[in-house]
Amino acid sequence: MLAVFRDLLRYNIEFAIGIVLVGLVVIFACLSFFSPVDPSLIYMTIPDQPPSAQYWFGTNSRGQDLFWQLSAAFRNSLMFGLTVAILSRIISIAVGLASGYIGGWVDRVLMFINDIFVAVPIFPVLVLFYFVLRNNLDSFTLALIMACFGWPFDARLIRSVALGLKHREFTRHAVFAGMSTRKVLLEEHLPYVMPIIFSTFMNNMLWSIGLEVTLAVLGFTNINNPTIGTVLYWANSHSAMVVGTWWWIVIPVILIVMTFLGLFLLAISMNEYIDPRSRLRRMGA
């Protein structure tokens, strides 16, 4: 594993850049564990200070040190994105592989459910959840709901790969070697869908964080919980650009761009590495 990491760093420039960008953001987010202030409290410092030696990212109109505010916000948003991506990946792998391999009525039922989720418009549903749950809608609940909507397209993608794998001779061979369905799916087929999982993982994170920002900016989430979205919500509600506290908007946006660029670069470089064809070539086939 370490050797893999070293090889990627040395021979893949995208990976190196990606790891630096994501690494910076992750370290920044982790600093929130050592935060001297509680990011949910307001008027702890002088409001509207531009970036300086004392306040690196400046302070906002609510009297919060933006450095620690953003650190907590990024931690929360990254955790949120990860939770959604991991949960929805698990669902899409299970549904996609089983549906493609088992086929028949299992496939029809799963794909019926799948298509319902594709068809349901997610945004109104999330708003509805907000109105019902109000401030009980914490990050984790929102992540669960979004995970339930984040899998169907990718499940279809995985299913199409699984359909191809089903008819490869080694699958039949595995069956006649007495392997159970679970074993065939997890050990024979999973490595072939890993590239899809990785690239969709990053897409999914991007989608879920983006959607959270949208909801938050409109005020449909718990706005007292610092996330990338709520930081922008408050900036907007205090007309940050108009009153000249530009750092309240510009710094979070730069950090978001860094995060997504880094995640994207990591995704493509790792994809190349775990792609079965490239793996085979490295093995000397």
Binding site: R168, E169, F170, R172, H173, A174, F176, A177, G178, M179, K183, E187, E188, P191, Y192, P276, R279, L280, A285
Partner: peptide, 28 residues
């Protein structure tokens, strides 16, 4: 038991061959 057409496809290219033999022995 079957023997199929394409020996290059008979085993998962990402897996070691003996696992198929071991699985067969264990199961049958």
């Amino acid at each position: 038991q079957p023997v199929f057409q394409n020996p290059f496809e008979a085993f998962n290219p990402l897996k070691r061959i003996d696992r198929y033999l071991a699985s067969t022995a264990r199961r049958f």
